[in-house]
Computed example of a mutant assay.
Amino acid sequence: MTEGPEPWEPGSGPFAAGSIDPRRYAPATERNRDAILAILREELPTSGVVLEVASGSGEHAIHFAAAFPDLDWQPSDSDPAALASIAAWREEAGFANLRPPIRLDATAPWPMEQADAILCINMVHISPWSATLGLLRGAGACLPPGGLLYLYGPYLRDDVATAPGNLAFDASLKARDPQWGLRRVEEVIAAAEAQELGFDRLVEMPANNLSLLFRRKD
């Protein structure tokens, strides 16, 4: 049996046989969480509810809930094992502003009707395009005017050469599932506009990742 959180990447499947710790450990979280946090400090409201879609291991929710004690953090995921990991990390942290995780499938009706901001980190490329469309549809319905939708991950751009590492990553994702793969920024923006989500700005991030920021139109 293994003790302690297991290394895990989104989409990698269940825990190893014999694991007794429900917590997941996503190595990418430690590499990107502070760069993401720097942007969120500029963009999030001072109070309200922040919904994280596809929270995965739950480590981002822990990190951000600690950084923003005046915001209520609502983690979610569609994977039962991820929900167990989030719950375990949450219990260990004991933060009053971190809510129990909820099951949320981006392609299905959402269990929440309102959120003041929505985050989605590293889901768009490790899911079918229908999940991105569901995310945008749900965000358009839940956010108030001016509410933030924040997306993070690797993307393709029409006018920018794609890094070789991202091209290789895209090929590996499609080999695992033909419905996965890096999405074009321009296609995401167009789909967001159809849900009354206006494109705010793009921020280049470390390791050839991007932050895409959208605001719910008035």
Score class of each variant (00 low, 15 high):
8 W>E: 05
9 E>L: 06
9 E>S: 06
10 P>A: 13
13 G>P: 04
14 P>Y: 06
14 P>F: 08
14 P>D: 13
14 P>C: 10
15 F>M: 08
15 F>L: 15
16 A>W: 04
16 A>V: 04
17 A>K: 07
17 A>Y: 02
18 G>L: 08
18 G>I: 06
18 G>P: 07
19 S>F: 02
20 I>D: 15
22 P>D: 14
24 R>A: 15
24 R>I: 14
26 A>V: 15
27 P>N: 11
27 P>M: 07
29 T>L: 14
29 T>F: 08
29 T>D: 15
30 E>T: 14
31 R>L: 09
31 R>P: 11
32 N>R: 06
32 N>D: 09
33 R>L: 04
34 D>M: 03
35 A>I: 03
37 L>W: 03
38 A>G: 00
38 A>T: 00
39 I>G: 05
39 I>N: 01
40 L>M: 09
40 L>C: 05
40 L>F: 02
41 R>A: 02
42 E>W: 02
43 E>N: 10
43 E>P: 11
45 P>F: 08
46 T>G: 13
46 T>M: 10
47 S>D: 14
48 G>K: 08
49 V>L: 14
50 V>D: 13
51 L>T: 06
51 L>I: 06
51 L>M: 12
51 L>F: 12
52 E>G: 09
52 E>T: 04
54 A>P: 09
55 S>W: 12
57 S>M: 00
57 S>Y: 01
58 G>L: 01
59 E>M: 04
60 H>D: 11
61 A>S: 13
63 H>W: 01
67 A>T: 03
67 A>E: 08
68 F>C: 09
68 F>S: 02
69 P>Q: 06
72 D>T: 15
73 W>L: 10
75 P>I: 03
76 S>N: 13
76 S>H: 12
76 S>G: 13
77 D>N: 08
80 P>H: 00
82 A>Q: 10
84 A>P: 03
85 S>C: 14
88 A>V: 02
89 W>P: 10
89 W>I: 08
90 R>H: 03
90 R>Q: 02
92 E>H: 00
93 A>K: 02
93 A>S: 07
93 A>F: 03
94 G>H: 09
96 A>F: 04
96 A>H: 05
97 N>M: 07
98 L>C: 00
99 R>P: 10
99 R>Y: 09
103 R>C: 06
104 L>C: 13
105 D>S: 00
105 D>L: 04
108 A>G: 05
109 P>K: 09
110 W>R: 07
111 P>G: 11
